[in-house]
Computed example of a mutant assay.
Amino acid sequence: MNAKYEDELEITPHNEWSQKFWDDLIPFKDRISQHPFFLNMASGQLTLTSFRYALLNFYPLVAHFPSYMSLALAKATNFADPGVTESRNWLIQNIKVEERHLNWYRDWAAGFGLTVEELDSVKPNPAMNGVNHFLWSNNTRGNLAQALAATNLAIEWATGDWSSHVYEGIQTYADHPEIHINKRTIAWLRAHAHYDDIHPYEAMELIKRLANHDVKMQQQAFEAVKEGLAYYELALDECQRVHELSLKQDKPVAESA
């Protein structure tokens, strides 16, 4: 094993195709990070009902994330191909990190009044669950570049963006009598808003190494990112729909504390 890799995956400058790949995806990523639901979440405009709905129904995505990555890891077997060994090592390192995030997410949900039993028994509706089905399918049927693109670039890139805004505004919810904000309940947000934001850049670096001389693979990875973000957006549209319905019966947290 490459000892240097264990310390850090070097991020290299983009070449022509990878720079276009990255730039062309920014508008699709921004549809997630700037989605009205996350803007409302960051500004304290969600009702407690809609916040809980999102935490509950996005839980399977967080809980299964290490499994999606494990499916990608199973594809990293041909070490003679460029980027495969680096992808294998990176996935092994970060699967354990994602497992730790599950516990932090549970703490966040607990701070908003959800139990572990509720989380573990949730059955999201199709709009919320589509992203999970896509990631299972993509990581099972796609190649290694597609798997990294959909999971570690699409989902982690957009999540790092919106979580930084929500982290900045999370104290807006602190005065609500049914919400408890402390270091444990914001650990997931803090991680994704700060040190974990390197993950999508590392995923892009791995995609570059895997697909640098394969135009078809480049296009497959690009489409995997777009499709993953599209399913993410469907889930957020559903969260926003539930939020708008909840406003008929309740006030935003910022107005009801």
Rank of each mutant, 00 (worst) to 15 (best):
Y195A: 12
E233R: 10
W17D: 02
S33M: 11
A224M: 11
T159A: 09
H133R: 13
P13H: 06
A193D: 00
P177D: 12
I92D: 04
L71H: 14
L46P: 01
G83R: 02
S33C: 14
P124R: 11
T49Q: 09
A230Q: 13
G228K: 06
L114W: 05
M41Q: 08
A54T: 07
Q240W: 08
M41W: 12
Q240D: 07
S121I: 08
T12L: 15
L25S: 03
W108K: 09
Q249H: 15
V116R: 15
A54E: 05
N103D: 12
M41E: 02
H192C: 00
H35D: 05
L119C: 02
A150I: 15
I207M: 09
K208N: 13
D120P: 08
P13N: 11
E118V: 05
L245H: 07
P60A: 06
Q93F: 07
D81W: 11
L91V: 04
T172P: 02
Y167G: 01
S137K: 15
N212R: 15
Y195C: 10
N40H: 06
K20T: 13
K4L: 12
I26A: 07
Q218E: 05
Y173P: 00
M41G: 03
D197L: 08
A230W: 10
K208H: 09
W108H: 02
F58N: 03
L245G: 02
M69R: 11
K20Y: 11
Q220C: 04
A203Q: 02
I181Q: 05
L46T: 00
L236M: 07
R100I: 10
E168A: 11
R184H: 13
K75D: 03
E118Q: 13
Q93D: 14
L206Y: 02
E8V: 15
P124W: 09
D107Y: 09
N182W: 05
E6I: 12
R241I: 03
C239I: 03
L114G: 06
Y201D: 13
A211M: 12
G44I: 05
A72Y: 05
N182T: 08
D24F: 06
S256Q: 15
H176Q: 00
Y201S: 14
Y5M: 12
L236K: 00
E178K: 15
G169Q: 04
G83P: 10
D214W: 03
S33P: 11
E227G: 06
H192E: 01
H199S: 03
L48T: 01
W136E: 08
W188S: 02
E244F: 06
I155W: 01
K96V: 06
S50C: 08
E244P: 04
D197Q: 12
V84K: 06
E6C: 13
S163G: 07
E244K: 12
R184Q: 13
M217D: 07
A127C: 07
L206H: 09
F51K: 04
A76L: 09
Y232I: 00
A63Y: 13
L236R: 00
A224Y: 04
F28I: 11
G111A: 03
T85I: 10
